[in-house]
Structure formats: structure tokens, C-alpha cells
Design a protein around this nucleic acid. Structure first.
Lengths: 177, 177
DNA sequence: GACCTCCATTAACAAATGATAAAATCGAAT
DNA sequence: ATTCGATTTTATCATTTGTTAATGGAGGTC
């Protein structure tokens, strides 16, 4: 992105801190911002019919949270987003960002790239869940998120992998020998 | 959408027929169209490391195939799309559609809605794969795609559900009694 | 009608994963 | 250092799902 486009964007950003454990976007609540994750680790998650939290995606430093348009239905969030460590976010009003996208080709391309990445990560994960064993999914997780296994709760990882944390523990000791 | 916007769109559409079994978008090939499924049933699928076809999404009559931007990377398709029955498609060049989106608010909203729906179907499926048993996933499939179970191959359904077709058969007889 | 091919079902056994409970480990707070 | 609480590991057994192979059925072709 050119310096000029970048400046236009950065001028509208506001930085906010979120403490560890806090859920800063809640399902069925309004939240109309786009977020850039400057520091820390976050996840998106949902509660399944059994009342368990299911991790959908992890976000690490210097990345972008799921865009407003993909996590929102009729102005209400369809997902929860939680800080798993102390976190710094930069945010911009989603409407303002959409205006930027419409009038600025570079920012539009950037926004579309974010969307594509979001989708293709989901496709990758979908294929993994549909066609790999739990052990293979763990290995894939380790490749996609190096180090994360030692930074966040195994319960959160297990629900991401679609297994229980007990199974995760078994696979870990299996892979360790 | 207003009649005027609709007309602008429809004027650019071309109808094409695809025969049963034909894969009309191929991974790693160029395809720069947006598609409307007028008649028939399609699926998107991929080949996993073991060489098996994995169904990702099914599309039924009067719906919209995954948008160009979400199924394409560096101008090459990342997915295969196949007609599971004799199919009629209406298509428009993706670039032309993007132009329409930029200059026409209604069409832009329409396009964004398609994107959101695409994502939220994936999220639903992700949650299912990560937190439901195979039997529950089959029930969810039946709700989402009524009748489809009797119209397409069970092998295609099984890979969508993340199980073998033998397991699918077991679950079917289990649920039948 | 006989044959063939493809697909779905069933069976028997093996492997993977879940459920429950108990033990071990780790870190935070005092 | 000690205690407390939460997380992770280990163990045992039950259930689900996979693998391989055999059986059955529907539709197409000759």
C-alpha cells in the first residue's frame, strides 16, 4: 500500500488495550469496528448446544481480526472475540473503513485480500476437520501457529481441533516420544 | 434490489448448461466469472493429501456459487466446482461485477450479503465439525439441505460430513429405526 | 433376460476418541 | 515455603468411527 493510502487509514485508527481473558466482542451485541491486533493473542469462539466454548480461529500479533462484514448479521455480532493474553488493538469504525474502500482502490484491494485470507483459512481448516485425523490436525495447528501451544490453554486448542483436552494430552505425549 | 439495478445486472448475464458430473471450475485454472445457479445441484470440492475428494459445500437451485474473490488466489482457482446433476448457470465476468458493485450501492450490498452468507455457512459447518458427533452432523445436513440426501451420491455427502461412506450408511440405518 | 458396473449396505474386527475419575503439575497468592 | 485452585496428565473402560471384505440392488447395455 502506498504511503498516502496508509496515512489516510492510520489517521482514523484508535488504540485500545484489552486485558487477558476479556471478551471484547460479544455474540448478539453491537460492535461496528474493524480491528488490527498490534500485540497479544486473541481467539474467536462460540458456545455450542452443549454449552461448551468452541474456538474457531486464533489471532496473533500483527494480524487482522475477522472483518466486521463477516462476523456480523443484522448489525449484531455472530461470534465472540476474546483476548487470551494482554492485548493491544487498533480500531476504526467499519463504516468509515467501507467508505475508504469504495473511494480508494488500494484500500479496497487490501480489504478484499483480508476477506480472501479469512475465507481461505476457513477452507484449510474445513479440509483438515473433514479429512485429517486428530493427530494430523494437531501437527497442522503447530505449523500454522508456531509456539501458540505453549502460550494458551490446551482446552482452547482442543476445542479448535475438535477433540477433548484429554485427547489432546494423549496426542501430545504420543508425539513427544 | 430495485428493478433498475436488477436490469443492469441481468443484461450482462449469460446462460450456460453444464452436464452431470462435469467439473466446470478447476483448481489451479483461471476462471473469472461470478455464477448464479439457475437449475441443478453443484458442489465445491478438493483433493486431500490422500487423493480423496472432499466435498466442501453444496449448491442447490436458485442460489449463488462462491464468489470469485473467495475461491481465487492470484487469478487461479483454489477449489473445484462440479455439477452433480444437469445444471444451468448464469454467469457474469467478475471484473464487470466488481465495477457494478463499486458504482451501485444496491449491488454492493447484494454482493456483501453473498459474502456474509458464504462465511456464515462456513462458520456453521466449522462449529458442527468441531463440536458435533457424526450423527448430529448428519441431522444438521438434513436440515440445511432437505431432500439432497436422495439426490446425490452418499460418497459426496460422507466427505462433506467428515466420515466414510460406510459410517454414513451405518448412521442412516441407525436413524431409520 | 443376462451381464456388468456402480453404489449402498452389512458384518467383523481394529483403531481412535470420548467419559469419568484420580493423580500430578504448575502458578499465583499469601 | 505453603497453600490453594486451575490445568494437565494418566488410567480405565465405553463408544464411535475406520478398515477390509463380502453381499445386495438398481440401472444401463447388449
Amino acid at each position: 500500500m502506498s504511503a498516502k493510502s496508509m496515512e489516510e487509514l492510520v489517521n482514523l485508527l484508535k488504540v485500545e488495550a484489552v486485558e487477558k481473558g476479556s471478551t471484547f466482542i460479544r455474540k448478539n451485541k453491537r460492535n461496528s469496528k474493524e480491528y488490527f491486533l498490534l500485540e497479544g493473542i486473541c481467539r474467536s469462539y462460540l458456545i455450542n448446544p452443549e454449552g461448551e466454548e468452541i474456538s474457531l480461529t486464533f489471532f496473533v500479533s500483527k494480524s487482522i481480526l475477522s472483518p466486521y462484514s463477516t462476523r456480523t448479521r443484522e448489525e449484531l455480532s455472530i461470534l465472540n472475540f476474546q483476548a487470551l493474553t494482554a492485548t493491544k488493538l487498533a480500531s476504526i469504525d467499519a463504516l468509515k473503513f467501507e467508505e475508504l474502500m469504495v473511494k480508494n482502490l488500494e484500500i479496497r484491494r487490501f480489504g478484499n485480500t483480508v476477506l480472501r485470507n479469512e475465507l481461505s483459512r476457513k477452507v484449510e481448516k474445513e479440509i483438515g476437520l473433514a479429512s485429517l485425523s486428530a493427530k494430523e490436525r494437531l501437527l497442522q495447528f503447530r505449523e500454522q501457529y508456531p509456539k501458540l501451544e505453549n502460550l494458551i490453554s490446551h482446552t482452547d486448542i482442543a476445542s479448535y481441533l475438535g477433540i477433548t483436552n484429554i485427547s489432546l494430552s494423549r496426542l501430545r505425549s504420543d508425539l513427544a516420544r
